[in-house]
Amino acid sequence: MTLQKSPHILQVEDSQADALMTREALQDSDMSCRISIVEDGVEALEFLNQRGKYKSSEPPDLILLDLNMPRKNGRELLAELKAHPKFRSIPVIVLTTSRAVEDIASAYDLHANCYIIKPVDFLSYSETIRAIQAFWLSIVTLGEQ
C-alpha cells in the first residue's frame, strides 16, 4: 500500500437535506475524506464511467446508496454495479429510510455490503456517517480501485 490521497465517498442521494447532513457530519470528523454526490442511478453510472459532466471524476472507495430515487433507483443501480467486473468490488452501503423487510432482503440479495436505516435526528445520523467512515475507510482494508 502506498500513502495516497484521502479516501473518496460517492453518495447517491436525491434528498439534498440528507446530502447536506452527510457533508456536515464528515466535517465534524477527524478523518479527511472527500465526498461526491449524485442524485440518482443514471448520474451515478455516468460518474463511475467518467462520462458527460463527470469526465474528470475519480473512482470512489465507497458508495452510499439510497434506494428510492428517480429514473434509476437504488436496487437497479445496485444490481448493475454488482454485475460489473470493475465496480462490483467497491463496497456499497445502502443508506435508506426504508425498514421494509423486502427492501432489506432484496438489498442483501443483490450483494449490498451492508444496509443501514437512516436515523431521524441529525446527531444520530452524523454518528452513523462517522461510524461508516471509521469502519469502511479506516478499519477495513479495501482493494485497489
Binding site: S15, Q16, A17, D18, L20, M21, E24, T97, K118, V120, D121, F122, L123, Y125
Partner: peptide, 12 residues
C-alpha cells in the same frame, strides 16, 4: 424524507 429534512436541518 421531508420530515428528515426538517428535523435534520433544524438540528444542524
Amino acid at each position: 424524507e421531508p420530515l428528515r429534512a426538517v428535523a435534520g436541518s433544524v438540528q444542524m
